[in-house]
């Protein structure tokens, strides 16, 4: 969380508690990472000019390739969002390659998607190629055919049927509970044939209830 540049103790106890409290309130976002610093020199490390060498590249994870146009291609991203990464992360390829930068699987799958797209294949064909190699489980959502249809429609069906049954039952209940008494209002006084003492007591009881 903290971007302390002092290099010694990155999270002081007080700062941590404050952060924790803020975090608990869910208001963390802009607190620690956002500092208004005056515009100044580009780099604090001496001896490194523009695009200088890192002191220790191994600390920054595996070396990266520069981004290519295909990496930002919305069509390719859309395809990758339908493909399940096989690294065990349970994410789609696009999310995995843009989130878990230690993963070697998702960039490889990304390269394969790009290569297939460069061969002029459509999205459907690319997905089919992946399914052919890895099985249906490579897709983020099962294809809508056969038993998988049950996967999609059983919940809605169950809810609809339950809703229909509920409506019927409710109708029956409410009909049963409402005997046909048209002159209900006129029978009010007879329904409440209570002695004045009883009504007085009722009044007192109602007094007790907070409103």
């Amino acid at each position: 969380m903290t971007r302390g540049h002092d290099g010694t103790f990155p999270v002081s106890r007080r700062e941590f508690l404050a952060l924790g409290a803020l975090g608990l309130l869910g208001v963390s976002g802009n607190v620690p990472s956002w500092r208004r610093v005056p515009p100044q020199a580009q780099d604090s490390l001496p001896g490194t000019g523009p695009s200088g060498k890192l002191w220790d590249p191994s600390r920054a994870g595996r070396p990266f390739e520069p981004v290519r146009a295909a990496d930002n291609d919305a069509a390719i991203q859309a395809i990758e969002k339908q493909i399940h990464c096989t690294c065990g992360c349970n994410l789609d390829v696009y999310t995995c390659r843009t989130t878990d930068f230690t993963c070697g699987t998702s960039p490889a799958m990304h390269r394969r998607v790009v290569a297939l797209a460069e061969q002029g294949k459509t999205a459907q064909e690319i997905l089919a190629a992946f399914v052919k190699q890895n099985g249906v489980s490579i897709l983020m959502a099962p294809p809508k055919r056969g038993f998988n249809l049950a996967g999609y429609f059983v919940p809605s069906l169950v809810i609809l049927i339950a809703g229909a049954i509920l409506t019927l039952v409710l109708r029956r209940w409410s009909r049963a509970a409402r005997p046909p008494t048209p002159s209900r209002v006129s029978s009010l006084s007879s329904a409440v044939a209570a002695s004045p003492e009883e009504l007085e007591r009722l009044r007192r009881e109602l007094d007790q209830l907070s409103s």
């Binding site: 789609d92 099985g135 249906v136 983020m140 099962p142 996967g151 999609y152």
Partner: peptide, 20 residues
């Protein structure tokens, strides 16, 4: 369930849940 019934593994990810 899918593995039991049709013998193939499927992945059920966010697209499925969002749709339903």
């Amino acid at each position: 369930l899918s593995e039991l019934v049709q013998g193939t593994k499927v992945t059920v990810g966010p697209p499925f849940f969002n749709q339903v």
